[in-house]
């Protein structure tokens, strides 16, 4: 990649920032050059963000129908999967899967609720009543 071939796609998620790339300068030497983003990279990142948002919306509609506990909504809102949440909370993956059921979630001890609140950085009231995703 030559220095003037470094992508300058001004991608929105950099918020005006730029990233360092290595490219060939005039005398054939590699140098750091600033790039305002590559649309290929932007697409891949936004795809990952969108996937979490899609899962969050899905979890929310199941929550409002009473088929799912609010835990799923917060999990995806914090960009976590069951595996990530398990690593961050010390709960086993199978217990988290149980806690996703509304009946089981209702019976959770205050101690366990406090643990989830700590992981998500929210209050218990917020945990039980997540706002509708945008």
């Amino acid at each position: 990649m030559k220095k003037d071939e470094a992508p300058q796609d001004n991608i929105a998620m950099y918020h005006g920032g730029r990233k360092a790339l290595y490219a060939v300068a005039d005398e054939g030497k590699f140098e750091i050059t600033q790039s305002s983003g590559w649309s290929v990279e932007e697409m891949a990142t936004l795809q990952a963000v969108d996937e979490f948002e899609r899962l969050e919306r899905e979890a929310y509609s199941e929550f409002s129908e009473g088929k799912n506990s609010p835990l799923g909504v917060w999990m995806y809102r914090r960009r976590m999967s069951i595996a990530t949440l398990s690593q961050c909370s010390d709960f086993w993956q199978w217990s988290i899967k149980r806690h996703l059921k509304p009946d089981v979630f209702k019976r959770l001890s205050p101690k366990k609720i406090a643990l989830y609140c700590d992981v998500f950085d929210i209050t218990a009231a917020e945990l039980f009543n997540p706002k509708e995703p945008k």
Binding site: M1, L21, Y22, V40, E41, M43, A44, Q47, A48, E51
Partner: peptide, 17 residues
């Protein structure tokens, strides 16, 4: 999603290209 994941590991997470 799989192909997007490869792109992210290769280009997004500060690899210098």
């Amino acid at each position: 999603l799989y192909l997007g994941h490869i792109i992210r590991m290769q280009e997004e997470i500060g690899t210098g290209g």
